[in-house]
């Protein structure tokens, strides 16, 4: 539910959040991004970082620079002025995605968990091919980047998408570049590590490079940002190997276009579908 009045919270002595909703709602995320861009444009002394998530904006301030009441007044004022933007500059990346790759299948079997693609098929009463199509047929909106470096949280834009429950107990090991689905949110592992989301497959291309070697990765090693979009292009093993070889050679080029994403038009269309 989007709140009538955004809620300001203090966290410790140097973090604040402006919360627009308690739900996973892209309309809330558009407001979050609008406020983030506004604060970035204003370049307010003492604000060190603004961190967008799906439903709230985190603000990190220089703790000993101003009194908390100053930040509360300032952020409350900015929050009260935020409306959904009409357009957002957004990059659309196409990511080659090997659904039901052998690594995720092997780990799912080893852990005694259902593979995510099979689980979607079972829940929707469809084949695994149709499950893959349902997940990949819509572009996804990156509502935020976080948890670990470059780990993104992507939500379906043009359909209701597919959903899976989060795991009751997180698995302790998942391969780097494995992409997973928790609720409606698609996320991917920037490094080998734990995950509480069912696995769908593995990307052929890097999502985090601490020593950037692939075209376009900046010094931070993180390429994707909140407000980007993803298109997941299903591939098979042969193409996965070909792309991996190019990545290792340093010759891979991400397929990306930058465009103005029309938030107003998108919101109108979704409202029509909902009605």
């Amino acid at each position: 539910m989007i709140y009538d009045v955004p809620v300001l919270r203090r966290l410790g002595d140097c973090y604040y959040t402006v919360e627009f909703s308690d739900d996973a709602d892209l309309q809330a995320n558009f407001r979050v991004l609008a406020m983030m861009q506004h604060l970035q444009r204003e370049n307010i002394p003492g604000i060190l970082d603004v961190i967008p998530t799906m439903r709230q904006l985190g603000i990190v301030v220089e703790a000993d620079r101003r009194k908390p009441v100053y930040w509360e007044r300032l952020l409350t004022e900015y929050a009260s002025q935020v409306t959904a933007p009409t357009t957002i500059t957004s990059r659309l990346f196409t990511l080659p995605a090997w659904y039901r790759d052998p690594w995720s299948v092997e780990i799912a079997e080893r852990n005694g968990e259902k593979h995510g693609v099979d689980w979607i098929a079972e829940n929707h009463g469809i084949s695994t091919d149709e499950a893959i199509r349902k997940h990949s047929e819509t572009d996804h909106w990156l509502a935020c980047v976080g948890w670990g470096p470059g780990c993104f949280f992507a939500y379906p834009l043009d359909t209701e998408g597919v959903t899976l429950p989060k795991l009751a107990t997180a698995r302790t090991f998942t391969h780097v570049r494995t992409f997973c689905l928790g609720g409606k949110c698609t996320a991917a592992l920037p490094l080998d590590g734990p995950s509480g989301y069912p696995m769908l497959g593995r990307f052929a291309t890097p999502i985090y490079e601490p020593i950037p070697t692939t075209h376009m990765f900046p010094e931070s090693g993180v390429l994707f940002l909140a407000g980007d979009r993803h298109r997941y292009r299903p591939i098979e093993g042969d193409e996965y190997e070909e792309i991996q070889a190019k990545v290792i050679e340093g010759t891979y080029r991400y397929d990306v276009v930058e465009e103005e994403f029309d938030v107003s038009e998108y919101s109108r269309q979704r409202a029509t579908v909902a009605a």
């Binding site: 909703s21 308690d22 961190i51 998530t53 799906m54 439903r55 989060k166 009751a168 609720g183």
Partner: peptide
Amino acid sequence: AGTDPSNIVDDI
């Protein structure tokens, strides 16, 4: 957010 009562929609 998830079925566990401690789940929230992810935030910072």
